[in-house]
């Protein structure tokens, strides 16, 4: 999709002036893979850098959206402006999706201090969508104080959230398994804060104990300067435990402010990942342009497939732009 540059520029300026419709439209353009968005994204990026991005991840049905709903209420009571980016899976068969996270947040629909956007993951496997990082740039530029980023329901290894959030909340429930599950590699290693939701259910304390033990062992090894991962207990339906959770989130951001080294380490990793994603997007677009049916005589994909060209040399030329 090609977009008139002046119109996109106008959308970016309106979004920075907190126009919800302009911000929403920009996110759609990002999702659709519109070309020529880079000047506008640069403008938006320059206007941002202030939002606190809180990631919320965990298995399907753990209560992520309901927890987000409660966090919105908490932050609104503190007079902060809150945006939500909620990702749900796309159908691997049709490409369609039923985006149902927003449904849990209906008490905030009419609040002008809340912006909720649903996003389908469109086949991406890490718990987010390919367009999520740039959509976050839009939300950041719109001046939302808090951005709650909710992943699809995840399993053990979808860890993209750590690449975009300043605080990662990993939800678990009473059904999250025994102490052995809690020492496995993957998702559980990326939590800044564990949230055991539905904490009053019979087996929930077993999960809490297993996580506390794991966190304790980990803390001893990581030393005093490291962020102390905590385990919070919540009842997202009633709001129990939300204030304590919000206090933990606050401590996490204070920690990042007070520890420039840890903050730099996190930010550098995140910028690196985002830059790689942008570069990969540009390369993919180049390949589509050059490999498409509309470019006769320059179908490099077909040439490589037929072994008329070398795979590696062609790929390198694609990046250098001088094939």
């Amino acid at each position: 999709m090609r977009v008139a540059e002046a119109e996109v520029k106008q959308l970016a300026e309106s979004a920075i002036a907190q126009d919800a419709r302009a911000g929403a439209r920009l996110i759609t353009l990002i999702e659709s893979g519109a070309s020529d968005l880079y000047p506008a994204l640069s403008t938006l990026y320059a206007a941002g850098g202030h939002a606190r991005i809180v990631g919320v991840t965990g298995p399907p049905g753990a209560g992520k959206s309901t927890l987000v709903d409660q966090l919105i209420a908490y932050y609104r009571a503190a007079n902060l402006r809150v945006a939500v980016l909620a990702v749900d899976p796309s159908s691997p068969k049709s490409g369609g999706a039923v985006l149902g996270d927003r449904f849990r947040m209906s008490q905030h629909y009419s609040d002008a201090g809340v912006f909720i956007r649903s996003m389908a993951n469109r086949g991406a496997l890490g718990g987010l969508a390919r367009s999520t990082p740039d959509a976050l740039v839009v939300l950041d530029a719109m001046g939302w104080d808090i951005v709650l980023l909710e992943t699809v329901g995840v399993g053990q290894s979808e860890i993209d959230i750590m690449r975009h959030a300043g605080a990662v909340l990993v939800l678990q429930t009473s059904h999250s398994g025994d102490a052995l599950q809690s020492v496995k590699a993957g998702l559980l290693e990326i939590a800044d804060i564990f949230v055991v939701n539905r904490a009053s259910e019979p087996d929930a304390q077993r999960t809490v104990r297993a996580l506390r033990e794991m966190v304790h062992v980990d803390a001893e090894r990581r030393g005093e300067a490291a962020w102390p991962v905590s385990v919070c207990e919540t009842e997202a339906l009633t709001g129990e435990g939300i204030a304590a959770l919000a206090a933990s989130i606050e401590r996490r951001f204070t920690y990042l402010t007070d520890n420039p080294k840890a903050r730099a380490q996190l930010r550098h990793m995140q910028v690196r990942v985002h830059m790689e994603a942008i570069a990969a997007g540009i390369v993919a677009a180049r390949l589509t342009d050059r490999g498409g049916a509309g470019a006769p005589g320059s179908d490099v994909v077909a040439d490589v497939a037929a072994r008329r060209r070398d795979l590696y040399a062609t790929a390198r030329a694609l990046v250098g732009g001088d094939d």
Binding site: S91, G96, R102, F103, S106
Partner: peptide, 25 residues
């Protein structure tokens, strides 16, 4: 969904301003 549409599901009990906000956002 099976036709490839991305459906934002709002369910029941919506207010008029709330649903309009959803359409915009």
């Amino acid at each position: 969904r099976d036709e490839g549409v991305e459906v934002v599901y709002l369910g029941e009990h919506n207010t008029v301003p709330g649903m309009a906000s959803a359409v915009i956002q």
